[in-house]
Amino acid sequence: MTKSLTLDVNGASCLVRVDPDMPLALVLRNRLGLTGVKDGCGLGQCGACAVLVDGEPTLTCVRPAADFEGRRIETVEGLGTPEKPGPVQRALIEARAAQCGYCTPGIVVAVTGLLRKDPHPGESAIRAALEPHLCRCGAHPSVLRAVRALARAAPR
């Protein structure tokens, strides 16, 4: 039993036929080739699969894709490319803020969501936005430095 869904992903309208209970992460990764959405736990516990949904950082590994029809979805691929990285990506490059990088796309998404709402977040807002994101390599200090630099550099 499959169902047709129209998803708005990175500015494009995408038609997919999927099982109604298929999690959004699997649709993005396997049907749309957006493998920047990482598969870390499938349990909503690690933050690796985060995307922006109507601007809000949202985990995608549990909730079915069907829930996201009519919502604006942005994955890490929609936030910049290796040739033209977006501002958050540039700041993370500048701060060398990734080791293995498996947690990084989720972190890019979380920081983008935060800064769109509040371009000058304080320390506790920064840490709260990153709290859902696990990083086993311990890249936290460099990620924090990158986000503070972005907050400082944002026009008042």
């Binding site: 493998t35 990084t104 796309p105």
Partner: peptide, 21 residues
């Protein structure tokens, strides 16, 4: 110098073995 692969990591372009299909 900019570490190798870093751009691929922050943009999600770098494919991990999990992403090879």
């Amino acid at each position: 110098i900019e570490p190798l692969r870093l751009r691929g990591l922050v943009t999600g372009a770098l494919r991990f073995v999990h992403d090879l299909q």
